[in-house]
Design a protein around this nucleic acid. Sequence first.
DNA 1: CGGTCGGCTGGAACCGGTTCCAGCCTGTTC
DNA 2: GAACAGGCTGGAACCGGTTCCAGCCGACCG
Lengths: 342, 342
Amino acid sequence: MVTLRDVARAAGVSLATASRAMSDAPHVSAANRAQVARAAESLGYRPHPAARALTTGSTGTVGLVVPDLANPFFAAVAKGVQARARETGREVLVADTDEDVTVEPDVITRLGDRVDGLVLCSPRLPADRLGPLLAAADGPVALVNREAPDAPSVSFDIADGVRQALDHLRALGHDVVAYAGGPRSSWSDAERRTALARLSTGTTGDAVLDLGSFRPTHGGGVQAADLALAAGATAVLCFNDLVALGVLARLHARGVATPADVSVVGFDDVAAASLVTPALTTVAVPLARAGRVAVDLLAGGSPEPEHRRLSVELVVRASTAPASPAVTDSRPLSTDPEVAIR
Amino acid sequence: MVTLRDVARAAGVSLATASRAMSDAPHVSAANRAQVARAAESLGYRPHPAARALTTGSTGTVGLVVPDLANPFFAAVAKGVQARARETGREVLVADTDEDVTVEPDVITRLGDRVDGLVLCSPRLPADRLGPLLAAADGPVALVNREAPDAPSVSFDIADGVRQALDHLRALGHDVVAYAGGPRSSWSDAERRTALARLSTGTTGDAVLDLGSFRPTHGGGVQAADLALAAGATAVLCFNDLVALGVLARLHARGVATPADVSVVGFDDVAAASLVTPALTTVAVPLARAGRVAVDLLAGGSPEPEHRRLSVELVVRASTAPASPAVTDSRPLSTDPEVAIR
DNA sequence: CGGTCGGCTGGAACCGGTTCCAGCCTGTTC
DNA sequence: GAACAGGCTGGAACCGGTTCCAGCCGACCG
């Protein structure tokens, strides 16, 4: 391997001068600068990352922690993180916790030692566990898709997304919209629920029906669909697209037509949302952009953590239609075990 | 930050002894070993990765290069790589080339300097470009889903997968099976094609119809479906699941029933394959396992590169059924511009 | 009882860069 | 013409570990 010492020798300068020349530092004559550049080029010199890291204290690496790389939501975020890091000359160290929040502290410390900053996607970690974790991290941490007082974050304007979805469904004549919620420990589910509560007057013709909490997966959607049918809902707003896809599949399996009988709205606009039939009406969320912003937030050295909230947009596809008066299972709402919000 | 020097001082030993104690090296008394361990523990000592990398020359990191993290195929491989690396105490540096093969050399050298070994998923890079790339890499490289003479690799028994799929379709009475192929530059597509050629007798009742090459995406599948219908095919074997999903969607859009009119078989068994309706019959490929194996192959120091081929298995779901005599568009095969293989 | 062997120990060199600091040289200003 | 300022330069310290090597000690053997 060729070291900076070799370059300096070839250029006929000292190690110190070669170092300054390579890093565009001042106090190097133009002649030497060119000489060093030429020598480095011809020898094929590549700086040793570990050596540089040892002296400068910065590794040129950002860490990314996600619950599941195979989940399209996090994969999209990862793409954004990766792209922005590469643009700014950094590499990405990625850790997949496999949906196990108990390993997160360990993962974060292990990764933390090797990176300049950490992008953390931890939607399910309870808030009271997140605080200590952030305090223990020695580098900057940026949160994605959740907010906390002690760290910069990039999240989405969920309240507005919920509003857009609800407006759309109500304009179609759906008086009661059922909500298939996500895990209770999820920050973004709480966000959806408060938005729904604010937008639900509780009067007939303007209500939101809480179907409960479901696993944020296709399977969760299957369960939610059954409850929605039991409640006689004509429109279901889902925690995310995976759940919505499950709802769609289950409705189809039970012979309920979408969107003729029941309208379904997702959240996130994952790639699959536009590919299924019927194509899913969903709230598009700029996932890759969030990843990029998170990387940039790591650099921000302001004492007060910055909270960026990205705007979202409902994209109307084929899974929503005007409410039909006839519903499959017309058991009255009052007898349903689930409670309407507010 | 607490250094090994601090630990040594606290334990009342020299730096050298502390280092030996921490790395379980011989020539340390049991008493000192315990003393050092205790001091390290109470001070919360964590070794400095860069310093260690500088002296030992090994970074404790493996690199992973994929064309697209958001593609479920590569996401699954990435999960496997990540899991195995973590188990063996290493971290994963990931690079997404965004399907651009021209950046691969750059990405590989940039990553190569920071890792002990590289797992390379580069299905589309032509073989003549891959060779030089491997030669230029200074660390070990393991290939996933393709083979090359100069590097260890983990691939799948594609020929057997093709055979299983064909057997299945023929048993259902499909005399002619159409193949919706992947990109010409793809190693694994070539593998499928040679297998198909070997299994196609060319006689009527035992033929394979080549629909051509398609982008390995949903959109590619849409195109393939139109060609398949034009050719009057009753069964379509697809390059991968994404293509198969596109075929399914297009058939549905054109009012062709699956599997009643046309049977569709995918490849890979991506998560979405089991979730669509009809659930996709596909060749299950152990993607995560391939990722794990690739990591292990990096360690193997044998001069002769090891080629591991993992077995695959057809999983029959709902997208295949006995051939129906009536086809949607019965234009005779002979007039079709595409040629039958062999 | 002396010599040797072996294990344990710590000083010091080293990995490949970055940066402080002292010295040099040039050009400029009274 | 001498002092001074300022830009360049290279020697050397340093980052935090690992490892070579020489020295020390006790134990065992002859």
